[in-house]
């Protein structure tokens, strides 16, 4: 059963608020490990988390903050891990970029582009043998340029593996936009060439994302690999004054310098690129304001 938009929306707001609270502390220099926040990825993370069944596995990248938070539902556990405390989600052994949570179905997270696709295929092969669950392996528009992306899908198709390869396409690889580094790649055609099912997600509507991912999950379980491409905007960019003039710096890692949070306004961009703006349009400004306030107090209480 799919949760209502309102219920899903609460989770999206919780996740945004939790990330903003980390960002505030990060700006103060509290965290020493490099953290890649995923502001703007919340609708996808909540949708994906809500379609996972008990035997499913999530294989993540260095930008795993949103998924780990959504999965473990504890800011304290993730924050303590970033502080390398024993009380952290992984006992302070993994920090941020490799943060996994096997107990909650996240066996592995990799900070090497393209490295996690083969591991995800291996997990899928083991699950196929057990006859239960699927593996979902994440990557970005940068990691899909690695050879393992093609290799993994080719192998997964040949073995009909229960695998979703999910590409979070934010159009940036560190500080380089797609248009600066390669020709555009049409993943519809790419998937068709390999005989792999393809699903495209855009618009940040958490409810429709859940519906689409549920279908993709069923296809992967029954027929083999599915390639999902989700358009995301990693929020938190800023304008840098350079010699040649002002230049947009897309957020990659570290504290987002232009994003501030005082406990009330959590929206970052006034466009559908921000999942909170989408919720505001669907559920209203009053609902969003109340929800942010509620989640902020819940999270503060947890940290106390």
């Amino acid at each position: 059963m799919t949760l209502s938009l309102q219920k899903l929306g609460e989770r999206v707001v919780w996740l945004r608020t939790a990330q903003l609270m980390i960002n505030e502390e990060y700006r103060k220099g509290i965290f020493k490990v490099p953290i890649h926040l995923a502001l703007g990825h919340e609708a996808l993370a909540v949708a994906l988390e809500s379609v996972l069944s008990r035997n499913d596995r999530l294989i993540l990248t260095h930008r795993n903050a949103a998924y780990n938070l959504a999965r473990c539902q504890s800011l304290q556990a993730v924050r303590d891990e970033y502080l390398l405390k024993k009380s952290g989600l992984a006992g302070g052994k993994l920090g941020s970029m490799n943060l996994a949570n096997p107990v909650r179905g996240i066996p592995y997270a990799s900070s090497i582009l393209g490295n996690s696709f083969p591991v995800g295929a291996g997990v899928a092969l083991a699950l196929q043998k057990k006859g239960k669950g699927i593996a979902i392996s994440l990557g970005g528009d940068g990691s899909m340029e690695e050879g393992t992306f093609y290799e993994t899908l080719t192998f997964a198709k040949a073995q009909k593996l229960p695998l979703i390869v999910l590409i979070e396409n934010n159009k940036w690889s560190m500080a380089t936009h797609i248009s600066e580094r390669r020709a555009p790649i049409d993943l519809t055609l790419f998937a068709r060439a390999l005989g792999v099912s393809y699903v495209h997600l855009s618009g940040n509507n958490v409810y429709t994302y859940v519906q689409a991912l549920k279908k993709a999950r069923a296809v992967a379980h029954k027929n083999g690999p599915v390639l999902v491409e989700a358009e995301v905007s990693t929020l938190g960019d800023w304008i840098k004054q350079e010699e040649k003039g002002p230049r947009l710096i897309n957020y990659h890692s570290g504290p987002a310098p232009t994003v501030t949070f005082g406990g009330t306004i959590a929206t970052i961009r006034r466009s559908p690129e921000d999942p909170l703006q989408v919720l505001e349009k669907k559920l209203g400004a009053v609902w969003l304001k109340k929800s942010v306030s509620k989640q902020y107090h819940t999270l503060r209480k947890e940290l106390l």
């Binding site: 592995y108 490295n115 083969p118 591991v119 295929a121 291996g122 092969l125 192998f155």
Partner: peptide
């Protein structure tokens, strides 16, 4: 490259 990684995925499971 992928074949080397597959075994690690299975090992985790």
């Amino acid at each position: 490259s992928t074949l080397a990684g597959l075994g690690f995925g299975m090992l985790l499971e």
